[in-house]
């Protein structure tokens, strides 16, 4: 199903306040009309926000990203999940993709890669990103 970009909602999970404005701006430029910043990925939050995209930022290691990805995928099967990680550990990336992330960005990925990952979420389409989920 293709969503209208203007209707796209995003949940931004980032615990470092210094990073929130940057990711909020990036999500909005990618067509997300509503960006809700939260420290939680609880089922209650997901049901309240009903996000089309969830962006888990690099300062959110303490939210246990893998558990969060799995929970989001269970609650919101069609929600696009984009993770920005501090480490580029390929094993961790693979696991994150396997449990349900659509894109996992590492320290070397730049803004254009993030833009592409988020634009896919806003439009409801999955682009052929190099680190996208394949299963």
């Amino acid at each position: 199903m293709t969503r209208e970009p203007a209707a796209a909602r995003a949940l931004l999970v980032e615990r470092q306040p210094a990073l929130v404005p940057f990711f909020r701006d990036t999500l909005e430029r990618a067509g997300h009309a509503d960006v809700i910043a939260s420290r939680s990925t609880s089922a209650t939050t997901l049901r309240r926000v009903r996000p089309d995209t969830v962006l888990i930022g690099p300062g959110s290691a303490d939210v246990r990203p893998l558990a969060a990805i799995r929970r989001i995928r269970q609650e919101r099967p069609s929600t696009r999940i984009v993770v920005v990680a501090y480490r580029a550990d390929p094993v961790w990336r693979s696991v994150a993709l396997a449990v349900g992330a659509d894109a996992v960005l590492g320290p070397d990925d730049d803004r254009s890669t993030l833009d592409a990952a988020l634009a896919s979420g806003a439009s409801g389409r999955v682009r052929n990103l190099g680190m996208r989920r394949t299963s």
């Binding site: 210094a18 990073l19 404005p21 940057f22 990711f23 701006d25 690099p58 920005v84 501090y86 960005l105 320290p107 070397d108 990925d109 730049d110 803004r111 993030l114």
Partner: peptide
């Protein structure tokens, strides 16, 4: 900053 996106976020601030 080793994380490119964090570097851009800092520069934005």
């Amino acid at each position: 900053e080793s994380q490119v996106l964090f570097a851009k976020a800092l520069a934005g601030i």
